[in-house]
């Protein structure tokens, strides 16, 4: 039997608020360095005020320690800033399977940020019935990183992970 690497173990830790996603699928897990029984992990917050950072750190420390790594350090990486483009294909499928709409491509940022006076237009598909007939309810939902939509075909509300 081969011993799983620290990277393999860290990659299995899930997001505390979206447990269908691993931290690796979410793009929050940036780097895992292993030397003997010591591990250094770098994670990046999705949003500055993300309250889940401490839980992510504790989950990583707990899982790696249980796997026999004596010295586990979890560090913060602030730059480059997290982008929803870092959510993996597997992560996107997992979101939809769990009723959360996955983000489209994040806006390109060159030059000044344009002011947008009209509601954000997105092509959002209902993760429950697959209809494209959806309407934005609010730019903020259960967490800062999601917007709330409703499907006008099946009438169900759902969260959409914002392009960020």
């Amino acid at each position: 039997m081969t011993v799983p690497s620290a990277l393999a173990i860290a990659s299995e830790v899930t997001d505390p608020e979206m447990p269908m996603l691993t931290l690796a699928d979410l793009g929050v897990l940036r780097e895992v360095e292993e030397e003997g029984r010591c591990v250094r992990v770098r994670i990046t917050p999705t949003y500055s005020g993300c309250p889940a950072m401490a839980t992510m750190r504790d989950d990583l420390v707990s899982r790696l320690r249980s796997a026999g790594y004596a010295d586990v350090r979890v560090e913060v990486s602030l730059s480059p800033a997290w982008s929803s483009d870092w959510i993996s294909e597997r992560g996107r499928r997992a979101l939809v399977e769990h009723g959360v709409s996955a983000p489209g491509p994040a806006p390109e940022r060159t030059g000044p940020v344009p002011l947008s006076l009209l509601p954000t237009r997105r092509e959002v598909t209902c993760p429950r019935c697959g209809s494209g007939e959806t309407a934005l309810v609010s730019e903020y939902a259960s967490t800062a990183c999601k917007a709330q939509y409703r499907c006008t075909a099946c009438l169900e509300p759902f969260d959409h992970v914002k392009e960020h």
């Binding site: 770098r42 309250p51 839980t55 750190r57 707990s62 899982r63 979890v74 560090e75 913060v76 602030l78």
Partner: peptide
Amino acid sequence: DSQWAFGTDFEDPLAGV
């Protein structure tokens, strides 16, 4: 520590930066 929603101690928001 993973049992505690907000951890059992503070983390440095700039740890490793």
